[in-house]
Amino acid sequence: MDLLQLRYFQTVARYEHISRAAEELRIAQPSLSRAIARLEADLGATLFDRQGRRVRLNQYGVIFLRHVDRALSELDDGRRAVREARDTGLGRVSVASETLLTVTPLLGRFRAAHPRADVRLYQSNAEEMDRRLRAREVDFCVASQPLTGTNFESVELKREEVLLAVPYGHWLDGRERVTIPELADEPFVSTRVGHWQRALLDRLFAAEGLTPLLSCESDEPAASQDMISAGLGIGLIPAVSRQAGTETRVPVAWVHVDAPDCHRVLTLVWNRDTYLSEAALKFREFTLNTPFVTRHLPEPRGGQASDGPAPADAPRRL
């Protein structure tokens, strides 16, 4: 049994198809089949049920794959640790977030405190963040939706109200509060399914037995305010976006939504089975000991909507 055989087995197990696995591994199908046969002979048990080029993991294959995944992951982590220690001193920390605006101030402060850290940032929706964590492609996710992997751990960073943004001159411009039933016939600017804004919008409407009317669905949450300001619809926007965007652009009015749980919860999530470089460990410590806040700007016109007193943002330790 050697490392190459284990890599071959892992790839065949993922595809459950000899020709597809051979194509990815860039080897001939007969060579791959022989390698798997030698591995099975070494183990004294077949790992796949064969149906032509199509194969299925059997009970022994499922058991063996669990250990192979763990062993190869440890080896990959070891390579990464050596490479990062050699190249950067502190190593690399990789972070995924649904919106980059959310984590930019935090990462800026971290880079200032640890200039030798190699920081990588990825924009991902919830499904992609879940996959990246499971595949150990990122160290942390700053998520606005629950990520529920069995090996995931999380800490709440911030809880903030989500407001309704409307274009100036809209009938809600100047209103203090609005209920969901009042918005039943209003066109909404939102994100596609998979993003937290859409999940919140659908949940609030479903609680009233309603379905939101959508005028625009996008993959770019940061563009929502611009589209609302242009009169394409109304939309749910977190307080942090209002604070960051009002100073220079995006004129909209703000209204409180009179509905329970109309807020966003930001959490830091990581896979406890993933190797963390020194940079990643320092990032986690820095994040858990730094109030997750954004700069406050003058109150915008309309609706008297505000964030209220600064929340107690000290994170909860697990």
Score class of each variant (00 low, 15 high):
residue 76 D to Q: 07
residue 91 G to N: 14
residue 87 D to Q: 14
residue 85 A to F: 08
residue 92 R to I: 11
residue 93 V to K: 05
residue 105 P to A: 05
residue 103 V to G: 08
residue 71 A to D: 11
residue 74 E to T: 09
residue 53 R to M: 04
residue 113 A to Q: 12
residue 73 S to E: 10
residue 58 N to C: 01
residue 65 L to F: 03
residue 89 G to Y: 05
residue 111 R to S: 15
residue 48 F to H: 08
residue 111 R to N: 10
residue 45 A to K: 13
residue 51 Q to W: 11
residue 102 T to W: 05
residue 49 D to F: 05
residue 99 T to F: 01
residue 64 F to D: 07
residue 95 V to R: 13
residue 76 D to P: 00
residue 67 H to D: 11
residue 72 L to K: 00
residue 80 R to S: 07
residue 102 T to L: 10
residue 63 I to E: 11
residue 94 S to D: 01
residue 66 R to S: 02
residue 113 A to R: 02
residue 77 D to Q: 09
residue 108 G to H: 07
residue 68 V to R: 04
residue 107 L to N: 03
residue 97 S to A: 14
residue 113 A to L: 00
residue 55 V to G: 01
residue 103 V to L: 10
residue 105 P to T: 04
residue 53 R to I: 06
residue 74 E to S: 03
residue 72 L to C: 06
residue 51 Q to S: 14
residue 80 R to I: 07
residue 82 V to C: 01
residue 59 Q to E: 15
residue 97 S to G: 14
residue 50 R to A: 15
residue 67 H to P: 02
residue 63 I to P: 03
residue 67 H to Q: 12
residue 56 R to L: 04
residue 48 F to K: 07
residue 57 L to R: 09
residue 110 F to W: 00
residue 110 F to Q: 11
residue 106 L to I: 06
residue 52 G to C: 15
residue 84 E to T: 13
residue 92 R to Q: 15
residue 62 V to D: 13
residue 112 A to H: 04
residue 84 E to M: 15
residue 72 L to R: 00
residue 49 D to C: 05
residue 105 P to L: 05
residue 96 A to R: 10
residue 109 R to I: 01
residue 48 F to R: 12
residue 105 P to N: 04
residue 81 A to F: 02
residue 78 G to I: 00
residue 71 A to K: 08
residue 56 R to F: 05
residue 107 L to P: 03
residue 45 A to F: 11
residue 71 A to T: 09
residue 73 S to W: 01
residue 46 T to Y: 03
residue 108 G to I: 09
residue 94 S to Q: 03
